[in-house]
């Protein structure tokens, strides 16, 4: 597969525009290395949480605190948003910029919905359950791990929003395509981390 010449970029987009140039392929490869590093980062936060999750001091325990319906709602929102970002990439592979932008917008909205739920959840804990950052080792580990994931969602929402803007301005080219592809990888990875969070933090917290 050879890289297309610049003048072909606007006329006929290669089938997988994110891998049409060496730069694009390098971005995707390097992003996998980044995700490997992110796995280590979240791994250490999970390790801390697992080690400290029963040190509740005077605060509430996981079983008293967590409400499964909220967690289930957040889980399904994030799962659906992962599917919509798959649809975005499929639209990109068909060269359909409008549909691509639309699916990215849906993904961002779902991401915002997830963030809203998480902010609501944290606010409930702090205001009504007396469960703050410094309440116990469990609460510190919980807010650090889940909050770090939430910060990743926020970053992803801002990133994809900026890409939607760039897409409108510069169009779908072999330059913009790798950026969109990589942001979709990031979004899937956020979902993968959430799978571990709802399992290890919330469900295991309920089981004991």
């Amino acid at each position: 597969m050879s890289a297309p010449h610049a003048e072909q970029v606007t006329s006929a987009l290669p089938h997988e525009p994110e891998k049409a140039t060496l730069e694009g392929r390098n971005k995707v490869l390097a992003f996998w290395l980044f995700l490997g590093g992110e796995s280590v980062l979240f791994g250490t936060l999970f390790a801390t949480f697992l080690a400290l999750r029963e040190q509740i001091a005077d605060g509430p325990s996981a079983d008293e605190l967590f409400k499964l319906p909220t967690v289930a709602a957040a889980t399904f929102i994030l799962l659906v948003s992962s599917l919509t970002s798959v649809f975005a990439i499929q639209a990109m592979h068909k060269g359909n910029r409008k549909s691509l932008s639309l699916w990215l917008i849906v993904t961002v909205i779902l991401g915002l919905g997830f963030l809203g739920l998480e902010i609501y959840e944290f606010a409930e804990y702090v205001n009504h359950e007396k469960f703050g950052m410094t309440t116990s080792a469990f609460s510190s580990a919980f807010y650090t791990l889940v909050g770090f994931h939430g910060a990743h969602v926020l970053f992803g929402v801002v990133w994809i929003s900026l890409l939607i803007g760039q897409l409108a301005k510069k169009g779908l080219t072999v330059v913009t395509a790798p950026k969109i592809y990589v942001s979709a990888m990031y979004w899937h990875f956020i979902d993968v981390v959430w799978v571990f969070i709802f399992t290890v933090v919330y469900l295991l917290g309920k089981v004991g």
Partner: peptide, 16 residues
Amino acid sequence: FMAFGFFVAGTAVITA
């Protein structure tokens, strides 16, 4: 890349 990331993450969890 991912396997190595998960390996180090798993090691951290088991160690803790």
